[in-house]
């Protein structure tokens, strides 16, 4: 157990170091979702968006929940990229030739991705705060948002790592990633509520786990506990199932790749 912890903390430290060496990329990852979605998109659609349809005082406050969950989505889906490169350049092989527990590398990656994602979510909520979006459920609500984000993020990271272990080349990986991420965003309640979507889109969006996550995060920000709780209860169940499926698939891919 002591060894396990030594391995995981050293491996997690490596991810932190890598990120800190890539200052430009770090800045870009942190700022991009806020800048692009929250500030540009939020302000751009301020007047075009109908407050009646959005059920929110303004578009930014509506969008905040979507941007939070989109950030979780992007971080999660990209969570396997570093392992993909490790696999391709032989570093993973070097790690796996040491007497570490077979799950240490993966666990370190989960810890790192979840920590970065949580920090980003907090920054997004902070920036939204500056634009006058004050979470209706307070600190406890923010903690709840982080929990939902992590539950969604675990499954996504598992998918990403499973892909990293299974693909033949990293070209394949990035094609699938690009193919997954935009439809996931557009076929969800991130940008507009389901009621405002064309029928077929809202039908598909119901099956998107992202929609469930957003529908719980949004009332936590906009309305308050009484409205949020049923959604929160629901999303926890959905995410447990989602995570179980993703982790099962991920474990299978890992075992196939690692023998």
């Amino acid at each position: 157990m002591e060894h396990y912890w030594q391995e995981i903390s050293a491996l997690t430290m490596r991810w932190v170091r890598r990120l800190s060496r890539e200052k430009f990329s770090m800045l870009f990852t942190l700022v991009q979702p806020m800048l692009f979605w929250l500030i540009f998109f939020g302000n751009l659609f301020q007047r075009a968006a109908d407050a009646q349809v959005m059920q929110a005082p303004n578009y930014i406050s509506f969008l905040a929940a979507g941007v939070v969950v989109m950030t979780v989505l992007n971080n999660g889906l990209a969570g396997g990229v570093d392992l993909l490169f490790d696999k391709e350049n032989g570093f993973l092989e070097r790690l796996m030739s040491t007497p570490i527990h077979r799950t240490s590398v993966i666990l370190s990656r989960f810890i790192f991705v979840m920590a970065i994602t949580s920090m980003q979510v907090l920054v997004i909520l902070g920036v939204s705060y500056l634009f006058g979006v004050h979470p209706a459920t307070g600190i406890l609500g923010v903690a709840m948002i982080l929990l939902i984000g992590m539950m969604f993020g675990v499954g996504l990271t598992a998918i990403s790592m499973a892909m990293a272990f299974s693909v033949k080349s990293h070209g394949d990986f990035f094609s699938v990633l690009g193919f997954l991420s935009l439809p996931m965003i557009f076929l969800s309640s991130a940008l507009v509520p389901l009621t405002a979507m064309p029928g077929w889109m809202s039908f598909l969006a119901q099956f998107n786990p992202m929609t469930w996550a957003i529908d719980a995060v949004r009332p936590l920000i906009l309305s308050g506990w009484s409205e949020a709780l049923p959604h929160v209860g629901m999303v926890i169940v959905v995410m447990l199932v989602f995570d179980a499926l993703c982790l099962y698939g991920g474990a299978k891919a890992f075992r196939r790749a690692m023998g």
């Binding site: 903390s9 050293a10 490596r14 170091r17 890598r18 060496r21 350049n89 092989e93 007497p99 570490i100």
Partner: peptide, 21 residues
């Protein structure tokens, strides 16, 4: 060359030191 470009030589060895307990 199983090297992490972003880590220093010493950090490589420190990481492995932890993995060998």
């Amino acid at each position: 060359r199983a090297i992490d470009r972003f880590l220093t030589g010493r950090e490589h060895l420190q990481l492995l030191g932890a993995l060998y307990h």
